[in-house]
């Protein structure tokens, strides 16, 4: 197909316009973090670091951040173990009900967020009769994080084949030794990618979290949601948002490094 140069140019302009539209709101948030006007009117008249100072001093932000990190770390740990086990089972064996298991793993993120949220809320409170707490958030997050680890590990297992593992077994290594010395090292970057995705997913999750968070446990997204509507807290929320935007560059950078490592190794 030969595209006319007009068509090419139109497509390029469209793409550029959408990219601008994608980044513009984020840029506005970044600039507003130094906006002296509390109601963040545009354009900005002057520069202040008052909001940054207030955010740094805020105990609420610090506590919420600690809770979020804790939840994300534990949920990611659980997801790494369960997701890897599941990927090994589904990729290396065939058994009755395999497709159902596959579907079951995807379900928590395929179903709309409110459904997963209310199902777990009802399960914890209505059926089991336990109070919502930090641990109910962890359980909920781990449940929908398994799929990211599972996907990454399964894709890696498929590509890696079984010849090295078979060679190891033929040379007399036991099941565990083969896993530790042959399978695991090959899975390392897949585990890192899956774990990073799971961590980010948990760190950012708000819908299921609102249904499973106990009174005392506020994750950072919940803190943001609660403070966004308070006029004198909104600029602090804005600063937290900027920090989160800056943080979100880290995984992208890491992923790029990882994939270029893979390409270099080929």
């Amino acid at each position: 197909m030969t595209l006319s140069s007009t068509a090419r140019r139109t497509l390029a302009v469209l793409t550029a316009a959408v990219l601008v539209l994608i980044y513009l709101p984020l840029l506005v948030v970044v600039l507003n973090s130094v906006n002296p006007n509390q109601s963040m009117t545009w354009p900005i008249e002057g520069v202040t670091f008052e909001w940054w100072r207030r955010a740094a001093d805020s105990a609420g932000v610090r506590e919420a951040l600690a809770t979020s990190l804790q939840v994300a770390a534990i949920a990611t740990g659980i997801a790494l173990v369960l997701g890897t086990l599941l990927a090994l089972a589904l990729q290396r064996y065939s058994f009755f009900g395999k497709h159902s298991v596959n579907l079951l793993v995807i379900l928590p993120i395929a179903l709309p967020g409110v459904v997963t949220g209310i199902a777990l809320n009802n399960g914890f409170r209505g059926i089991l009769g336990i109070d919502l707490s930090l641990w109910t958030i962890v359980i909920a997050h781990a449940t929908f994080c398994i799929v990211t680890v599972f996907n990454n590990v399964q894709a890696r297992l498929r590509r890696m084949g079984t010849s090295l593992e078979e060679a190891s077994a033929d040379l007399g290594a036991g099941v565990f030794t083969t896993f530790r010395l042959v399978t695991l090292p090959q899975l390392r970057s897949a585990l890192l990618a899956g774990g990073m995705l799971a961590f980010a997913l948990s760190f950012d999750e708000i819908i299921v979290t609102t249904f499973t968070a106990g009174g005392g446990a506020n994750t950072l997204p919940i803190w943001i949601l609660n403070n966004m509507f308070r006029p004198n807290q909104a600029p602090v929320v804005n600063v937290v948002a900027v920090v989160l935007i800056l943080f979100s560059i880290v995984p992208v950078w890491l992923a790029q490094r990882l994939s270029s490592d893979v390409e270099a190794a080929r």
């Binding site: 984020l26 760190f203 997204p221 966004m228 948002a241 979100s248």
Partner: peptide, 24 residues
Amino acid sequence: LTPLWASYLVKVFSWRVVLSEGGL
């Protein structure tokens, strides 16, 4: 891909700011 990693709430918040009274 990069904005995919940016927090969901940050993105909603940014539109709240853009569309606010006296906003961009």
